[in-house]
Amino acid sequence: MSLINEQTRGVFTLFKKEVLRFWRVAFQTIASPVITALLYLLIFSHVLEGRVQIYDDVPYTAFLIPGLIMMSLLQNAFANSSSSLVQSKVMGNIVFILLTPLTYLQFFLAFLAAAILRGLVVGLSIYLVALFFVDMPVVHLSWVMTFAFLGSALLGTFGIIAGIWSDRFDQMAAFQNFVIVPLTFLSGVFYSIHSLPPVWQAISKFNPFFYMIDGFRYGFFGKGDISPWVSFAVVSTFLALLVVLSLKMLKSGYKLRG
């Protein structure tokens, strides 16, 4: 039996279209975030290497790389689903999808899968490029993959919510600027939260991005600020909540079907 039959072709087609949408402009959607991450890497490692030591046997540059990978992966998974939805809404071509027999669940899965793919492709590209600069062992590949997948799924889902809610590009940009970016920078991409004052350490524990980055980093070095199992539980819970919320929005036709 073939995987693609009449029932599943619709959702595969939508997934394919969403993938081609970013792949056609890969310079902007993949190369450009990779270059941005590299600039961060060069500047921060140049300035801080040797001055900051977080784990005894891990050079700062190596410490930084998982954080940068995760940051870019999260931002790009979010950007993919949110910008595709907002753009289709603004252009009006979302009707081409709304007129089809696709269910709200299929709609969700196709947009989510494309967002995950974009996040993973960006993340993997940064990893491969970073190998030129520094030796990057992976202690627990399964944790690396788990958090990469959960992180891109979480932000892909969040992007779907933001994309449905936003009627204009500037509203979506507000999500990016006032939610995604601050949460990323306050999550320990560039530092260990143990280097923060106790108050900020406590605040960071409310930030889901902290768990994604810490769990991901644990996969590389076999050590982190907290147990990867705790991170796994927290991130999975957040993901489940956002999935339920976005499915509710889609099912009700919120802002899509009047």
Binding site: Q7, G10, K16, F96
Partner: peptide
């Protein structure tokens, strides 16, 4: 993002 033929094939694809 797409050309005419691609769009038509996508559209048919959504319908299985």
């Amino acid at each position: 993002f797409f050309n005419v033929r691609e769009m038509l094939r996508f559209q048919a694809g959504y319908f299985g």
